[in-house]
């Protein structure tokens, strides 16, 4: 699915250069469940942004489905993101003035789906994550666990092949964390690819592969034994 080739991303501030991410080669295959771990400032979010087509590298290529992502025009890149990638955020990033239903409808509207179809699919997704009775609630009227489940329903709205998650369990209580990770397991079982940035060793252990970053460099790339991953 992904092939990163000679990637370098450098941040410059006041004549000081910091290598945010550097990798000679990195492949992520279809259906993989990848956990990206490492200390703060190690380049995890930079990697996620580049995979999401939102941050172009200073050098190298990011190949996505056989296409060089950053050689595509911005609208084409946006289209790939809209059609094939779903995002999960640490603080959920729900639109505060929209209801749970409308939040899930946003990616469908951006995809040009009709109003009726938007509503039907959004209701079905919210029922799938156990929030069928909360569709008219605004984010402020939901618990953090419920908000993350709304965000997950929104992620699935356009049926993406790939999910990029940034600390998806960082703000959750143990019960909600388990519910989210169970849903991730379910997504992978459906054949989706997940790349999850996390500080949570337990969450990382659920993945099938772990990428360790330190100072913007890929330190290790380990396959996790199936028994542990399960």
């Amino acid at each position: 699915m992904y092939h990163l080739q000679d990637i370098t991303k450098v941040y410059r501030r006041r004549q000081e250069e910091v290598v945010a991410f550097k990798a000679a080669s990195l492949d992520i295959g279809l259906g993989e469940y990848v956990a990206v771990v490492g200390p703060s400032g190690s380049g995890k979010t930079t990697l996620l942004s580049m995979l999401g087509g939102m941050l172009s590298p200073d050098s190298g290529k990011v190949w996505f489905g056989g296409e060089s992502l950053y050689d595509l025009p911005i609208n084409e890149r946006t289209r790939r993101r809209r059609e094939q990638i779903g995002f999960v955020f640490q603080t959920f990033n729900l639109v505060p003035y929209l209801t749970a239903l409308e939040n899930v409808q946003v990616p469908l509207f951006l995809h040009g789906v009709s109003k009726t179809e938007q509503r039907n699919r959004a209701v079905a997704l919210l029922e799938q994550v156990g929030l069928g009775n909360r569709i008219e609630h605004k984010p402020s009227e939901l618990s953090t666990g419920q908000q993350q489940r709304v965000a997950l329903a929104r992620t699935l709205a356009n049926n993406p092949r790939l999910i990029l998650a940034d600390e998806p369990t960082g703000n959750l209580d143990p019960t909600s964390r388990e519910a989210v990770l169970s849903l991730f397991d379910h997504f992978v079982s459906e054949g989706r690819t997940i790349v999850m940035v996390t500080h949570d060793p337990g969450a990382a252990a659920r993945a099938s592969r772990r990428l360790c970053l330190n100072d913007g460099t890929l330190v290790t790339s380990n396959e996790i034994p199936a028994a542990r991953a399960a």
Binding site: I74, T78, R79, R81, R82, N93, V106, L110, H111
Partner: peptide
């Protein structure tokens, strides 16, 4: 800013 960034991540084009 964050909301706009999220909308763009979800597939909103600059013109939208």
């Amino acid at each position: 800013r964050r909301e706009v960034g999220t909308l763009m991540a979800l597939g909103a084009t600059p013109s939208l």
